[in-house]
Amino acid sequence: MSKFLKIVAGAALLSATTAHAETGLGRVATPAEVAAWDIDIRPDGKGLPEGSGDVYTGEEIWLEQCSVCHGDFAEGTDRWPVLAGGFGTLTGDRPVKTIGSYWPYLSTVYDYVNRAMPFGNAQSLEPDQVYALTAYLLYSNDLVDDDFELSNENFLDVEMPNADNFFMDDRADTELPIFSQEACMTDCKDSVEITKRAAVVDVTPETEGGDETEEAAAVEEAPAPAETPAVEEAALDMALVAEGEKNFRQCKSCHQVGDGAKNRTGPILNGVYNNAAATVEGFRYSSDMADAGAGGLIWDDAELTAFLANPKDYMAGTKMTFRGVRDEADIAGIIEYLKSFPE
């Protein structure tokens, strides 16, 4: 440790002398360039843009863009982060570290939502939307009432319950002295017993050996997907396509369509309509979906409608962590929109 302290002390001296080295390399950034990239927010509010948003507005955006992964009430789906609740669990057997129970600063919520969310469509939200989502997350954690509006004006008034429970790394005092003592080399203990075994827990992925080869072979030998039935060229209902495009926004955090579409969390959806399931190259489908595709599942109106209404009900093993589309008319729109990307 003493060596490290010396290094730090030496560096501190240097910091006082970082004058221009004058290599002339690089150029001065324009104010517009700095403004375009300098989006970070600090606990003291530095960086917050002007704006405001309330819980109700936040809920609308939440249900459309966030609940797919984080659940309608920020409770989290599958292994996506739980963002609400968990109060009183930090000293328990299963701590649930949420925005409410754990995060020390509200500025972190604004900063992260603004820079990295929604997953797959980062930095697409306007300041008012980020304020609204932040307000909704406070509400989900019972930290504000449902009529609360958050803005740059009242941002610093919000107190986070766990703010005082973080402290600076203290290993130099609490660990290094204990762990820097002479090590015993002979007759260090009287007996040794095995107390825990990984084999009992049994969570290691795949065993070593030929299993992979076998699986790969099995896939190759699987029956080819049924021939795509001839589709009659039907004219698209453009009004419905436009309606569907709006509803497809909730799909966009995981799926891409159109020119240059790539597989993301979900596969490319170009040509999905009336084609065999699980056939997009390069996407790793769940084994259930791959089996269904190999077994001849065709994404026609009926199948797509059933799947989109409640994906997990339709196919328990699907990787699509999405609550489903409640309104059948919305589903019809999404399908019509997908039809407009035949290739």
Partner: peptide
């Protein structure tokens, strides 16, 4: 104090405090 230095990569100790 961004996400990866508060929500993540902090060490929750037995007493509920976090390093």
């Amino acid at each position: 104090h961004h996400r990866e230095e508060t929500s993540k990569y902090t060490d929750l100790l037995g007493d509920g405090q976090a390093r």
